[in-house]
Amino acid sequence: MILLHDNKCDFCGTCVGVCPENCIDLGEAELNIDHQICTMCYKCVWICPVEALFAEKVK
């Protein structure tokens, strides 16, 4: 599952731009990932300019 460090995120939306599944929802100061749609492609993790997104394995 892709998770967010809230205190690192600058809400710039770069991850939204590269997300092929359109599963990231960005507000003024909130970012939500729809884990039902996310395919764990990691593009958002790699593109994030502040390393706010990270992947965690779910049992």
Partner: peptide, 20 residues
């Protein structure tokens, strides 16, 4: 760059990694 209006309207706005 975080546009979703286009996607909702059925236009694929995904940016390729090499172009972002």
């Amino acid at each position: 760059v975080e546009s979703r209006v286009g996607r909702w309207a059925g236009i694929d706005t995904t940016v390729h990694m090499k172009d972002m």
